[in-house]
Structure formats: structure tokens, C-alpha cells
Design a protein around this nucleic acid. Structure first.
Lengths: 209, 209
DNA sequence: AACATTCTTGACCGTTCGGTCAGGATTTTC
DNA sequence: GAAAATCCTGACCGAACGGTCAAGAATGTT
């Protein structure tokens, strides 16, 4: 059928971009922005360094592209928090989604954490923009639940900070957790127990136990 | 009384070391290990770069010295968790101590976080040694409280991970929190509200509300 | 087949990095 | 006050960094 080759130029280019972005995410997660070198990212991608510069121009541009890919995922988990939902179910679903994210994309979480940790200079517009808006919106939902007596009074933004911190710690502080628990490989049972503990604290703290 | 000058050579040297360590902690907190340069640390301390090398030899040795200073503080807050103590009071005191630490030594917290985030290669012996031992010891205390029916069953290590995450987030993720809350300066009220929320989650989750 | 566009890369460049060192200043010791 | 020990620092070094570029290879278009 037709002369179109199986791999279109568009997708060839996209595959190259994705290959580089994936390698870059891993190196940025391990070493941070300053610690990562273009040569090490190139080595991780199996490409010559000059090729990365052809596609992304500068290290900063590559870093921003990695961050952008992470942010698109970052905002999508709050869906279950809607006024008509059951508070316990909604918060449980949200916590579970965040735990899943830490388990499946730990590198993304660590790149994000590293960025915020060092001042969030590339993320400020995102934090003060879409993220703030999202927190405002979802906080209103929670305030509604509280007003209706469906859960204990809490400061909704701080509840979000707590949930983010507790769930992301399983990605960001993984070396500490593994060292303390003495389980070098990714222990599935430990992560399940962690998720259960986080849920217990959130639900218990909100009077939904 | 002798010719000893008001400032002994011992304390003169110590003052110099402390000056450098303090400057280094700040720069490492802002930029991470790789991002920090010896010249920027020297500039922050108001000394020539070669002077830092005179006292600490290498950048790595200086970094280790900064970490060591941080670790001595890191282990000291679990004191209130003792078998004969009241669970609610003990956990409250612990959470408050951790919140105070995040407020008063945010740079130390961020250096620690950065180190763990990037694999904890300089901290592994500490994490798997004294920290693991401490968690084991205090976990036994909490298990005891649970067995006596004085609090709800929880996985004690994961409770610690949760408390560490929630309290340290106020130092490590400060840019995110400030951006979302829209309070550029250090908002004392926000931090108090954060502390109250963390306490509510911990006590509520442990059935101590 | 000829041309245009896109892609690829080894070699190179200026800068900055961590670290060294000689030699002078300062302080301590006797 | 002289000798010894410690402290201080401008100048320098090789390595690694981010980034550039010209020239060739591959691909797409007509």
C-alpha cells in the first residue's frame, strides 16, 4: 500500500526526541541539572553529543523539555476530587494515584524534586500558575466537604502538601527507605505497606477512618 | 593568668572552619554538590579559594564535613519516643521538633535531601547504620504502644517516613509551598498551619485524635 | 537523476572547574 | 628575638564542560 514507508519522517524524528528525552530524564534524575553532562546523556542515549545539540540546541532547552514532559503528568491525578464524590473514596483514589506515580515514574519525581529543591527557577511560572490554580480549585471542593460535615476540618492546601510529601518520598528518598528497611531491591510489599500507612494517616487525619 | 591570648589558636582555627562550613552549607543547599563551585563557596565565605583547600583539602572532604555536621542534629529529635511516655504527647513532641528543625535549619535539610535524592553515596553507611538502628529501636517502642492498645496499629518505620516527609517538605519544597500559597516571604502563620495539619494527620492516623 | 532538505558527527574552541604550589605573612614556641 | 610551625594566597595547571561548525551521509521531492 502506497509508497509511505512504515516509519514516517515525523515519527522517526519523534522517536529520536523521545530516546534522548528518556536518557536525559534518567541522567538528570541521578545527577541533577549541574551534575548531568551532555556527554553522559549522549552516552546513555547511545548517540554522539553533537546530535543532542542538533535536536535541542542547549542543555537548558533539553532540561526544560524533560520538565515539560513531567508536568503534563503531574496535574492529572486530582480528577477524583469532585464535589459530588465521597471524600474517603476520592482521597483514597488520589493517594493511590500518587503512590502509583512514585512507583512507576520515580525518575520523573526526582527530577521534579531536584528542581524545586534548588529554587524552582525553571518551574516558578508553573507553580504559581496552573498548580496554584489547581490547588485553589480542589481546596474549594474540600472546604465544601468540610462545611457539609462530611470530614474533619483541615487546611486543604496543607493536606495536599502532606499527601505530595508522603507519596513522593517513596521515589525521592528511596535510598533512605531501602537502607532503613534493609531491602536493597524494590520491595513490593514494603511499598504496599507504605501506601497503606499513607492512606491511614490521610483518612484518619480527615476523620474518615 | 598566663600569656594565653583571649582567642586561643584552637578556637581561631575552629572559627575559620565554622565560617567555611556555614558558607558551604548555604551554597550546597542552593546548588547541590555538583552545582556548587569552590570559588562560589569561597566568595560566600569572603575568603580566597586556596584558603578552603588549605583547611579541607578537597571539595569532597568539605562536603563530607558539612554532611557530618548535619547528621549530628539529625538523630537527636527522637528522644521523646520512650516506652513509658504517652503516645500522643511523644509523637506530638517529635513532630514539633522536626517542624522546628525545618524552620530553623532549612539549608541543612536541603543538603541532606539533595544527597539522598542523588543516591546517598556519601550517606549509605549512616543510613544503614545509626539511622536504621534508631528506627529499629523506636519502632519497638511504638509496637509496644500498639500491643498495649494505646494506639491504632501502624507500620512504625513507614510512620517515620511519613513524618520525615511531611515535616521536611516545608524546608525542601519551600519554593513550591510559597508559590502555591502565594506568600513570597516566610509566612509564620502558614508554617504554624502546616505544623497543625501534620500533627492532625499523625495523631488522627494513629487513633490519638 | 538531480536537487533540496534534513540528519549526523569528529574535531575543535573558550571557559570554568577542582586542585597545586611556591613563597611570603603571621603566630607560637623556646 | 630567633627558630619553628602554622596560615595565607596569587598564579598556575590539566581536565572536563557546554557549545560550534564544516563537511559528509541519508532521506525526501520532483
Amino acid at each position: 500500500m502506497s509508497g509511505r514507508q512504515a516509519v514516517s519522517p515525523r515519527s522517526r524524528r519523534q522517536a529520536r526526541l523521545d530516546l534522548i528525552l528518556e536518557a536525559a530524564e534518567g541522567v538528570f534524575a541521578d545527577a541533577g541539572f549541574e551534575g548531568a553532562s551532555m556527554s553522559s546523556i549522549a552516552a546513555a542515549a547511545g548517540l554522539p553529543k553533537a546530535n543532542l545539540h542538533y535536536y535541542f540546541g542547549t542543555k537548558e532547552a533539553l532540561y526544560r523539555a524533560v520538565l515539560e514532559g513531567i508536568l503534563t503528568l503531574w496535574l492529572s491525578a486530582t480528577d477524583p476530587i469532585r464535589p459530588e464524590a465521597d471524600p474517603a473514596e476520592a482521597l483514597s483514589a488520589y493517594v493511590r494515584a500518587k503512590m502509583r506515580w512514585s512507583r512507576q515514574r520515580p525518575q520523573a519525581s526526582r527530577v521534579f524534586a531536584n528542581e524545586v529543591l534548588h529554587g524552582a527557577l525553571y518551574l516558578q511560572s508553573y507553580l504559581a500558575g496552573p498548580l496554584r490554580a489547581l490547588v485553589r480549585e480542589k481546596s474549594a471542593v474540600i472546604e465544601g466537604w468540610i462545611a457539609e460535615g462530611r470530614m474533619r476540618p483541615v487546611s486543604p492546601p496543607h493536606l495536599f502538601f502532606a499527601i505530595w510529601a508522603m507519596t513522593q518520598t517513596y521515589a525521592d528518598f528511596d535510598p533512605q527507605i531501602r537502607a532503613v528497611l534493609d531491602c536493597p531491591p524494590l520491595d513490593e510489599q514494603a511499598q504496599a505497606q507504605g501506601g497503606a500507612t499513607v492512606l491511614q494517616l490521610v483518612l484518619g487525619g480527615c476523620g474518615l477512618a
